[in-house]
Amino acid sequence: MAKQLIKGNEAIVKGAILAGCRYYFGYPITPASEIAEAAAFYLPLVGGTFLQAESEVASINMLYGAASGGIRAMTASSSPGISLKQEGISYAAGAELPMVIVDIMRGGPGLGNIGPAQADYNQIVKGGGHGGYKLIVLAPNCAQEMCDLTMLAFELADKYRNPAVILADGFVGQMMEPVEFPEPVKKLPEKPWAIKADSDDENRLISSIDLELEKLEQHNLELFKKYADIEANHVKYENYLLDDAEIVLIGYGVVSRVLQTVVDELRQRDIKIGMLRPISLWPFPKKQIAELAKRVKEFFVVELSAGQMVDDVRLAVNGKIPVHFYSRMGGVVPSPEEIIEQLMKLNEAN
């Protein structure tokens, strides 16, 4: 199959449609707007529906309604817009509605700016809405993964009746790279629970409310049983030159691309360094990190936030070896040279 040079944001839409998504409800926001624009362009061509909602809040609730109908549907936004969607995301998690939500993160807090950032980790991975729930969170670092992980997100969302999120930064969204698009999903999974406007509907209910305390507790327990299953089976990560590594860099999204360059350059200087890239941020590759902690000397985490994922790394490492941290914020992405300098400083300090 031929490669196409394409923006990450557009690759998401093509991946979604190949995955069988035919409904998109969204609201424009930089740097995610190309997703809405591409959806508006392509969905009508494939017999689908694109609807620009009156607000982020409306769009997540339209998605809630559409997902109740048993089809594949999605929305996308960027950080401030995702904050607005959080209520609806919590409802979808509670009602166990499969859907795909894309967050192309930008600088914050507040209106911030449109530069790339990773400060939504906590609001997505730890749950930005109310109540205890988990979202399946996949973090692409290239245009190919924008397509592939979007397709995977639809699959996992349906498999587990759970919202799944593509968490990317502005650069991964805006960057153009070659993408080889896979074959379309030809048959969508059956969803006996979905509202179908037929005679079985009287037995179906999409809802997140249960006033009976023990029943709601039971519902929570069942959700967490489901989450445990996801954790056991769907951790995704990439090892880059880890076999003999003594220093392990950890980063996701565009940061992992910078870290790759760091590893490449330092390997030329015979430094035993490698990278672990979490691809699923939830479930987080905590076991893999804990295993690494037994044989490597130190971790070095880089994020475009004041430090959010690093907390999960530290939990996994559990104090066994040092976990260093470096970050840039406000839309700034560190250069490989800058990170190498930090690593050298650490080396001197040791």
Binding site: Y23, L51, V57, M62, G65, A73, I195
Partner: peptide, 10 residues
């Protein structure tokens, strides 16, 4: 909004 979503599907 929810009604809009489900009506578009069905």
């Amino acid at each position: 909004a929810v009604a809009t979503g489900i009506k578009r599907v069905h």
